[in-house]
């Protein structure tokens, strides 16, 4: 299973390295989302959008919403990432090739999740720098922020790959995936935001409960995906 996962993960990352869709399209999309939310929440002043300190004006409101805005940007980017991950399998019916390959479906699931996890983590690092620059976000407890981000991303990719497989054969997959994905990951968004707020505030103990929620969520969906991916691939 792990060998199969490695094969699929390497293949997906190689395709991304060649196509650069994540970095040329998804990353700019994430940054634009951040900027737009910043513009919507921030108060315009007559002189400039960015204050002398380098962050958007009305820094107080933005700072307090920074963690939530960061995760909304990541979540929206993740949907595109998931769609891209399954679009490459549908390009020339390569999905059938995977079915005919006799690769372990659990391995395919873990491989696709692994590749997506790697891409999203890199994306998050860049978006996080964007949040620091645009919103003046200061992370007091970096290790706690990283832990929360990793577990939340793991949850996002586990859910994303499960629902990506479920919808990738559907005629209306482009609209169906967000419709199914967003309600399911609402607890992840909430937990990740709360945990990251705790990391920003420098009070990791207050965010530990949310880490546990993220851990449980990631575990459940990874287990579900490992078991259910075979039937989903056959649908």
């Amino acid at each position: 299973m792990l060998r199969d996962a490695f094969l699929v993960c390497e293949k997906d990352l190689r395709i991304e390295l060649k196509s650069k869709i994540i970095f040329n399209q998804v990353l700019p999309f994430g940054m634009v989302v951040m900027l737009l939310f910043g513009l919507a929440i921030g108060k315009f002043d007559s002189n400039s959008l960015v204050t002398a300190s380098g962050s958007l004006s009305n820094g107080g409101a933005l700072k307090s919403a920074a963690a939530g805005l960061f995760w909304i940007a990541v979540m929206l980017s993740a949907v595109i990432g998931v769609q891209r991950s399954f679009a490459i399998e549908n390009q020339d019916q390569a999905r059938d090739a995977l079915r005919l390959s006799a690769l372990d479906p659990a391995g395919i699931f873990l491989g696709k999740a692994g590749a997506l996890l790697f891409q999203l983590v890199v994306l998050e690092v860049i978006i996080a720098f964007g949040a620091v620059f645009l919103f003046g976000m200061h992370i007091a407890t970096v290790w706690f922020f990283c832990l929360a981000a990793f577990l939340a991303t793991l949850s996002l990719v586990a859910v994303g790959v499960v629902y990506g497989a479920l919808t990738s054969g559907a005629r209306t997959k482009e609209t169906l995936l967000p419709l199914l994905f967003f309600p399911v990951i609402a607890p992840v968004l909430l937990s990740a935001t709360k945990a990251c707020e705790a990391a920003i505030a420098g009070t990791p103990s207050s965010g530990m409960i949310w880490i546990e929620v993220l851990l449980a969520f990631a575990f459940c969906y990874l287990a579900l995906g490992t078991v259910a991916f075979g039937p989903l691939l056959e649908e």
Binding site: I88, A97, L100
Partner: peptide, 11 residues
């Protein structure tokens, strides 16, 4: 060997 080639375009 199907109508489609089962290949990845980017590779």
């Amino acid at each position: 060997l199907g109508h489609k080639t089962f290949l990845y375009d980017d590779l």
